[in-house]
Simulated assay, not measured.
Amino acid sequence: MQDKEFEMNDIVEMKKPHPCGKNAWRIIRMGADIRIKCEGCGHSVMLPRNEFAKKMKKVIGKAEI
């Protein structure tokens, strides 16, 4: 399986949308766990890195340097 590449502040699309209706999440913390924040309602969720990699579909927007 190909490793998915993502960085801090990237906007990612998950396999399932958030209940608020948006499917865009911003990566706000990276480490052993990854915290993502919904771009629609602002709710944040922390997931273990391997679980996040399984649930992430693709990177929508790259972080601006």
Rank of each mutant, 00 (worst) to 15 (best):
R49C: 08
S44L: 00
G61D: 08
V45L: 13
I34N: 05
M1Y: 10
K57M: 04
K16I: 14
A32W: 05
G31N: 07
M56C: 07
I36P: 10
E5N: 02
Q2M: 09
C20I: 10
M8Q: 10
G40W: 06
K62W: 05
M30C: 05
K55P: 01
K62G: 05
P19L: 11
G42D: 10
C38M: 06
F52I: 09
S44K: 07
K55L: 15
D33S: 09
I28N: 02
K16N: 14
M46T: 15
E13C: 09
N9T: 05
M30P: 06
C41R: 02
C41T: 03
V45I: 14
K37P: 07
G61T: 08
K16R: 14
K37S: 14
M56T: 01
G42H: 05
R49V: 12
V59M: 01
A32F: 09
I65K: 14
I27R: 02
D10W: 03
W25S: 03
M14H: 13
I34F: 06
K57P: 01
M30Y: 00
A32P: 11
M46S: 13
P48G: 08
R29F: 11
F52D: 07
K54D: 14
M8H: 08
N50A: 09
I65P: 13
K15N: 15
G31E: 06
K55N: 15
I60T: 03
K55W: 06
I28M: 01
